[in-house]
């Protein structure tokens, strides 16, 4: 199988690695670039655990060919925190919105995309934004509450 170089921007850094034909973006990020924050849940677009932002839009990394991300901007949960946690991360921690944490990186990225586009979402808009992300542990309610809480904090600061 032919190896092809793919260069992209991952959480603000220029990164490059070889990819194989047919490799999806999730495997590329995890195996080639070592960013383990996006998770493999189903590999077929059913669970949202692999959600990353591609040029700012939430996508399921398991359904995207790595090659098609060449030259584009990827954001993952690993890039959210600066010196301090991102307000969404803080709200998840404070609101006990994670148990096993497997869904959390995908939930965070879906929520990041939502709050950028819509800093004051309603509960229904939060539900719609995370509607493609499955969680086995929390019953979703704490996650919805954490996203609304973070939105409140971010707005008060802005």
């Amino acid at each position: 199988m032919a190896l092809k170089p793919v260069a992209l921007t991952l959480n603000g850094s220029e990164r490059a690695a070889f990819t194989e034909d047919g490799e999806n973006l999730l495997d590329f990020l995890r195996r080639r670039l070592g960013d383990l924050s996006p998770k493999f849940g189903c590999g077929q677009g059913a669970c949202g655990a692999c959600t990353v932002l591609l040029d700012g839009a939430p996508v399921l990394a398991c359904l995207i060919l790595a090659e098609t991300a060449a030259g584009r901007r990827i954001e993952t949960a690993a890039g959210l925190a600066g010196a301090a946690l991102h307000p969404l991360q803080r709200a998840f921690v404070e609101g006990f919105a994670a148990q096993c944490g497997y869904c959390t990186p995908g939930m965070l990225m879906a929520a990041v995309a939502l709050l950028r586009a819509n800093p004051r979402p309603t509960r229904e808009e939060v539900v719609a934004a995370i509607g493609g992300n499955l969680c086995r542990c929390t019953g979703y309610e704490p996650i919805i509450a954490a996203v609304l809480d973070a939105a409140g904090h971010m707005e008060r600061r802005a």
Partner: peptide, 12 residues
Amino acid sequence: LVGQQLTGGAWM
């Protein structure tokens, strides 16, 4: 933690 378990577990 108890509250968290009860919320998620009842959903399950």
